[in-house]
Amino acid sequence: MEQMTKYLYKISSLNYSLQEKQILNNIQLVLPEGKFIGLIGPNGSGKSTLLKLLYRYIKPQNGQVWLREKDVWEIGEKQFAKEVAVVTQESSVAFDFTVKELVFMGRTPHKKLLKRDSKSDEEIVEDAMKKADVLHLANRNYSSLSGGEKKRVIVARALAQQTDVLILDEPTNHLDIEHQFALLDLLSECSMTVIMAIHDLNLAATYCDKLLLLQKGKLCAFGSPEEVLTVEQLKHVFNVDVEIMTNPFTNKPYLQFVSKKYKEKGKVNES
């Protein structure tokens, strides 16, 4: 008999289409617990849609999404928010809050009606702000922060939710290189399962335990970065030529992309 591995998410024959355009096509997938999982694929391959289905914001037309033996749509919003925290792409806020107030909102699913912020809430929020390195911004207004600071505040809010799953939709977008690394360092040090859509394949290779490759709504590959990031697969899905090396610091694959123009010219030293 097959060994029963503990799974976090199970997705069975999942289809999703919007206005007759098929966005996700027959996805079958089992995501393990406790890993850092990266979701990669070209623009329009259905990454965001798959994430939205995972965090039960949109309903699939066919198929089901299971979170630990339960259909996500049978879990109420509130209970779900205690299990899964989300950092969406939207980061604008209609009205201004202070950083601390925003991070406190991560405690919302844990609150009963009329319940005041308790001492333990205060500690959890402070701890989350410390982890995300925004404690020094606690009393600043959110709107006055830079893009990187804003992202870290939203991550702090998600941490304050104290879930064991964290889903992020392209969290490194619009961040400078320093803040990209800082954010991913932070996420990889968390004990929770992280599922993240990300564009930068080298960052994905460096930080993720498992990669999930989507192409035109279909699951192309799922496995370790070494298994997924191959020359053939990248050529097939992204239509780019690549040379795969090894990052001496991480021992993970390092991708050297070559555009069509320079490929024809060949390597400088060899000519």
Binding site: Y55, Y57, G76, E77, K78, Q79, F80, A81, K82, V84, A85, V86, T88, E90, S92, V93, A94, F95, F97, E101, M105, G106, T108, P109, K111, L113, L114, Q161
Partner: peptide, 24 residues
Amino acid sequence: YCFTNSLNALLLGEETATTLGISL
């Protein structure tokens, strides 16, 4: 006044409010 947390969450947008456990 009983729903101040939910009112706050609404200001963060529909998607974020939902992920914070609000039945929109």
